[in-house]
């Protein structure tokens, strides 16, 4: 009985996010155009400049376009995760957040539901992109489209949890745009999305170290390996660990008794 109530709540949150997404059809187009521009223009242009040696999970030489597809898939999830948190800030501004937070169900459950909703939303975008990439000649094993699904769920949850944490600290939509620039672009560029880590190390060991602590790197690698029907346990473990840490911090931040806002207020009051 209680479980049914939780499931209804989860369903309601997912449906609302989907309705909002459907009402903003341009979001779907934008989410696809961004990685496609990278694939069709950037990758095609750099194909002859950037050679990629044989590195796992690839078993032969590959074209640069093939290398960056997992990174672009993760990019879609990164943007979707950040847009999900943007919707939390929007909800706070239009007042819907109060409705969510006054639900009798536990706040952690409401936040996890929101996170699942954002992750589910990213899946059709990712698969449509992969189908277009396939038409462009990027052909991972067909089974890979299935095996990559758990990786997409985990990486989507991790990136969504990061967005959720950020949204707890941002009071206005205007401020969020700045944070997007300071989070999305550094995360994307300082990762293995565009170049393998060994290549980055050749250019700058420091940059390689930064990439090695960037959670986005592990989301990309997890997706890359599972798209080719292999598992990278380091990436799997780190994506789960980063995701749990971000989610835990977000739940604390949204707790009225212990949240970031509460602590700031308490400090001011003291």
């Amino acid at each position: 009985m209680i479980t049914a109530g939780y499931l209804r709540c989860l369903r309601g949150i997912v449906v609302r996010e989907m309705l909002r997404f459907v009402h903003q059809r341009s979001r779907f187009v934008a989410a696809l155009v961004r990685p496609l521009v990278w694939l069709f223009i950037f990758a095609a242009g750099f194909r002859s400049v950037l050679g990629v040696s044989i590195i796992p999970p690839y078993e032969t030489y590959i074209l640069y376009e093939e290398y960056i597809v997992p990174g672009l898939v993760a990019m879609i999830q990164l943007f979707t995760g950040m847009q999900g948190s943007l919707s939390m800030v929007y909800d706070r501004e239009v007042g819907s957040m109060r409705v969510l937070l006054t639900s009798p169900l536990p706040r952690w459950f409401l936040l996890v539901s929101k996170l699942l909703a954002v992750t589910v939303l990213s899946l059709p975008q990712v698969y449509v992109f992969q189908m277009i990439a396939r038409l462009w000649g990027i052909e991972p094993p067909t089974l890979g489209y299935l095996t990559v699904l758990p990786a997409l769920l985990l990486s989507g949850m991790m990136l969504g949890a990061l967005g959720l944490l950020l949204s707890s600290m941002i009071r206005q939509l205007e401020n969020f745009a700045g944070v997007m620039n300071f989070v999305i672009f550094p995360m994307f560029f300082a990762s293995s999305a565009l170049y393998p880590l060994w290549r980055i190390e050749e250019a700058s060991p420091l940059l390689r170290d930064i990439c090695a602590v960037n959670p986005f790197t592990y989301a990309v690698e997890l997706i890359r390996f599972m798209l080719y029907v292999r598992i990278d346990f380091l990436s799997l473990g780190l994506v789960v660990a980063y995701g749990a840490a971000f989610l835990g911090a977000a739940i604390l931040a949204y707790d009225p008794a212990r949240g970031v806002v509460g602590r700031v207020r308490a400090a001011v009051d003291a």
Binding site: C9, G12, I13, V15, V99, L100
Partner: peptide, 11 residues
């Protein structure tokens, strides 16, 4: 409907 779901009400 969203509010009803947040309270775990059957559809």
């Amino acid at each position: 409907a969203y509010h009803a779901a947040l309270h775990g009400m059957p559809r």
